[in-house]
Computed example of a mutant assay.
Amino acid sequence: MGMEKTERGWRGTPDLWLDAGYGLLVEGGVEAVKIMPLAERLGLSRTSFYWHFADREALLAGLVARWQAKNTGNLVARCEAPAATITEALLNLFDCWYDDALFDSRLEFAMRTWALTDTTVAAAMSAADAERVAAITALFHRFGYSETEADTRARTLYLTQVGYIALRSEESLEIRMGRNPAYVLTFSGVAPTEAEIAAFQARHRVR
């Protein structure tokens, strides 16, 4: 099972400590991510933390890397997923907004808040925004949109979603789903087919 057992007992694993760090980050911001509260949350000793991480900064760097791999990595992957039409391609991307396993909005909010007071995280956030917009722009390029139009539509889509996250907008699944056809039309200039919407709803277990 790969568990870190020693004569002194269970010290946890790096992922376990990162999971706890994630919990504190999304609940209370980066200031809440401290070694003693982490140890208390896990029921482990403070010295166990140092078995896996040199210091708090190393854990924070691990949280940044986890965020980059998850939110940016999955968004880019959904942009590159096979699609027959621009509308199907946009719905592939919309999967991110409905599946926390693909794109974690709580983590994104926490990272954006953290970036306000940490220049290193701000630089990582700026790079992530640029990479995401480039991926969405490439998606539009794939379906024949001009360079300027692809860029503008990509920014309209992305900044709308960032706005939802920044405002911590809470809407019912029914309301959000009901807006999807109009959003796809707004972002692409093309209306999705009923079959495309039905397929999207089915994979998000909406009947």
Rank of each mutant, 00 (worst) to 15 (best):
A166C: 09
V162F: 07
T156E: 07
T156A: 11
Y158W: 04
Q161H: 13
Y164P: 01
G163Q: 08
A166F: 06
L139H: 05
R142Q: 03
R155Q: 13
D151R: 15
L139W: 04
L167F: 14
G144H: 10
F143W: 06
L159K: 10
H141C: 01
L157C: 03
L157M: 09
R153F: 03
E149R: 02
T160I: 01
T148E: 15
Y145P: 06
L167N: 14
E147P: 07
V162R: 15
F140G: 06
D151S: 15
T152D: 12
D151I: 00
R142L: 09
A138Y: 00
T160P: 01
H141Q: 11
G144I: 10
A138G: 10
T148V: 15
Y158N: 09
R153E: 00
F143D: 07
Y164F: 14
T152P: 04
E147Y: 11
L159W: 11
T148D: 15
G144S: 07
T148L: 15
L159H: 14
T152N: 12
R168D: 13
Y158K: 04
G144K: 00
A150F: 07
Y164M: 10
F143N: 10
F143C: 09
F143M: 03
V162C: 12
L157G: 04
R155D: 04
Y145K: 07
G163Y: 04
H141P: 00
T137S: 10
A154Y: 03
T148F: 13
V162A: 14
A138S: 11
G163A: 08
E147K: 09
L159V: 12
S146V: 02
V162Y: 02
R155I: 01
A166W: 06
D151F: 14
S146W: 06
T152M: 11
R153P: 03
F140W: 06
G144W: 07
S146F: 05
G144D: 09
H141T: 03
E149P: 00
L139A: 04
Q161R: 13
E147M: 04
R142M: 04
A138P: 03
F143E: 07
T156D: 05
L157K: 00
Y145S: 11
Y145E: 12
T137P: 04
E149C: 00
A166M: 13
A154N: 08
G144Q: 09
R168A: 12
R155S: 05
I165R: 10
H141V: 00
T156R: 10
L157N: 03
T137Q: 08
R142N: 05
A154F: 01
E147F: 05
Y164A: 05
S146M: 08
R153H: 09
T152E: 14
T160Y: 12
R142V: 03
R168V: 07
R168N: 13
A166S: 14
E147C: 02
T148W: 12
A150N: 09
A138F: 08
G163N: 12
E149M: 02
E147D: 15
I165S: 07
R142C: 03
Y164W: 11
A138Q: 07
A154P: 03
T137F: 02
F140Y: 05
V162W: 07
E149T: 12
Y164L: 12
Y158I: 05
S146Q: 09
D151Q: 15
Y145L: 12
F143H: 12
G144Y: 07
G163H: 10
T137H: 04
F140I: 02
L139F: 01
